[in-house]
Amino acid sequence: MTDPMNKIPPFDGFGLGLRRTHYDDFLNNDVPVDFVEIISENYMIEGGRQMRILEEVRAKHPVIIHGVSMSIGSAGGLDQDYLAKLKQLEQRIDPLWVSDHLCWTRTSAHNSHDLLPLPLTQEALGVVCDNIDNAQDALGRPMLFENPSSYLTFPEDELTEWEFLTEMTRRTGCYLLLDVNNIYVSSRNHGFSADDYLGGLPLDRVRQIHLAGHDPATAERSLIIDTHDREVCDEVWALYVKALAMLPSPVATMIERDDKIPPLLELLKELDRARGLASATREQVSA
């Protein structure tokens, strides 16, 4: 377990993911964001243009390192080469924090490069906590873990996802990255209440919120799919407001877009909507 003195203070801000199509915007303009988030694996490299651009952006903005390949739920443990490269990036960039997902992506033989679901069992909880301890020790700092979208549950499940996350944070001292869209997607796919989910989490451990768009269910497909390829929908905005009202301290909010990426101005407008909602919610709560 990470040293409890090693805490991540709340960060109140609004940011975007740094994507290649927006490199010039970030290099040549004063983009009105409080932070940028990068996909760790894209920058766990040794040099070249991409790294130079990241360092230039880092000189202007705080950076969050967000990974998709740590595979914190792998029964076989963590990839030490991966951890070493992540540590190098962390030392090079000095991020606000480092995050990944509650999921697994690989076995000893293969990597799916997709966020695969974990059985919510005591055994999996033990594996995840051991792996988080390993990762946090290697990085020398606590991490954030994000609740995933999922498309199936396992017959052997023993816990709800929020119970799993609660116990995970208690045992390891890690923090939470609350993906509001993922809560919405999974609640619809598996028929649980998003309110129960939010109400069951240790909200004092949340340091960041992700907002994104999804592909709704169709006549042919009952599952909602987390796609990050469109605007945040009204239902997810409403859940965002609900979450903000419940959180005990300010958090960083980010709009995620990974496919069909629009011009930066469009994303900044969406981010302004988050700013406005956060401001209004704060006023309402304090009134």
Binding site: S74, A75, G76, W104, R106, T107, A109, H110, S112, D114, L116, P119, T121, E123, A124, V127, F154, E156
Partner: peptide, 17 residues
Amino acid sequence: THSPLAQRQTAFMDQVL
């Protein structure tokens, strides 16, 4: 490792691939 979780993950990966 042949834990239930490891077995589940191997079988799941087979399904995906």
